[in-house]
Nucleic acid binder design. Structure first.
Lengths: 138, 138
DNA sequence: GTTACTGCAAAGCTTTTGCACTGTC
DNA sequence: GACAGTGCAAAAGCTTTGCAGTAAC
């Protein structure tokens, strides 16, 4: 664990509710803490952390990856995402999450035995238009 | 509806079970039918079809978008995806799909009223390692 | 000295944009 | 003639790779 990596972890751990950082966001924050860190290291560290399962990588359809701490390292509970295709707003939700997780676990087991997969994770995302975007469309 | 667009639709409609075409795949197939079609038109047509809701755009984490016919235009029923992070294999599954859809619809309604979203679609994907990749890892 | 990690610059990829050309109404 | 659709080439954007330098053991 070098300093560069430590800074990346610190940035990710300090993410505010509702933030969904891209590699560049993380780079800028890390750069603020230690200006000697390069973007390349950010990408390499993020890859590493994803492989270790410490963070999750998401794609919300805007052409850049976003990262957030995996469960357990985070204050919040497990959640899924609601994405506005108009303005790109991303909302974390955990309504019905227990029911969802129960069903997902069941599905996971079913898929695992049927297709011989070792399943490591899932993504559930809803897409739509937020109130503001729906109004401005008219 | 011009010829170029018609060819793209034809390609998508003729997709075999288990195929998940990228823009380039579609371009190559369309090019085979009519060599005068350019890649640009493929992208423009795909965008259009996505906006019309005739096809869905997916991201499976390999850096390129994939497209498939939306429900209704397709022989198969609604399904979700299981992705191998090792070799990129994508499996369509519809096990537990009725239960999943029921819960997703309920969640959709809940999110819609809670966050004021007009929800247009969802993505459910499981990630993991297929049997072959799990073996070759060792 | 070997190894792991680094920044910088360059390259790689998919996707988008500018522009002139074509055909249609 | 306005307009929508097109191909080609160039640009854009995010991400990865090559390479030489540095620090740790």
């Amino acid at each position: 664990m070098t300093e560069g990596r430590e800074v990346v972890v610190r940035v990710l751990a300090g993410v505010k509710e509702g933030e969904h950082l891209s590699a560049e966001d993380i780079f800028l924050k890390a750069h603020g803490i230690n200006p000697s860190i390069g973007l390349t290291s950010i990408y390499r560290t993020l890859d590493l952390l994803v492989q270790l399962g410490l963070i999750n990588k998401f794609d919300f359809g805007d052409g850049r990856a976003r990262y957030e701490m995996a469960d357990g390292s985070r204050v919040g509970k497990h959640h899924h995402h609601l994405v506005c295709t108009g303005c790109g707003t991303i909302i974390d939700y955990d309504d019905f999450i227990d029911e969802e997780l129960k069903l997902l676990n069941k599905t996971e087991e079913g898929l695992s035995s049927k297709f011989g997969f070792k399943i490591t994770g899932h993504i559930v995302q809803f897409y739509g238009t937020c109130r503001r975007c729906a109004c401005s469309e008219r």
